[in-house]
Amino acid sequence: MSKIQSRRKFIRSITRYSLGFSLAALTGFSLGKATKSEWVWQIDPFKCTSCGRCATDCVLNPSAVKCVHAYDLCGYCDLCGGYLEPGHISRDTAAENQLCPTAAIERRFIEAPYYEYKIKEDLCIGCAKCVEGCTAFGNGSLHLQVRHNLCTNCNECAIARVCPSDAVIRVKAEVPYLIKGGFTPE
């Protein structure tokens, strides 16, 4: 082996060792900021301001964000702020009276004067219209959540990028929901 060749070989292995060493150091530092848990995206319902971007900005179409109902908060009202269009003509299930653009809320009579409201998630597009209505006129029991059976858990959630109220946050995969009622903000 010529002198030049062996010198080259020497430089190469020195560089290789320093690259390996830097990579190991970087790994070590990062380990200090890592957890065994996986992280998933979720909406903090107390921060969400029902802007409507959840419906339009998810990489999935329809969005992986759906409306959920915290039944333990609901008043079971006949006159539901989340269900009925503000200027509704009559209090029946006709589509023109409903706030939801896809008629995704099912209204069921329980006993006088109470009604149960249930979201049909295959219809819901996560537009937050009902959430807005329910928060403004009702108990705020309707709210948005990322549904993990649909969500692809993007490295950076496309909704988090545009949410005006920073409501889309990362939570540990062991507790993947922030459902109102059981959950109260810190």
Binding site: V68, H69, G75, I110, E121, G138, N139, H148
Partner: peptide, 21 residues
């Protein structure tokens, strides 16, 4: 704003669905 009703007919509160990741 509206209190939770006290149901007479034995209606049970449904659970909110939480599909797992």
């Amino acid at each position: 704003r509206f209190p939770m009703p006290e149901f007479q007919t034995g209606y049970e509160l449904p659970d909110t669905d939480r599909p797992e990741p």
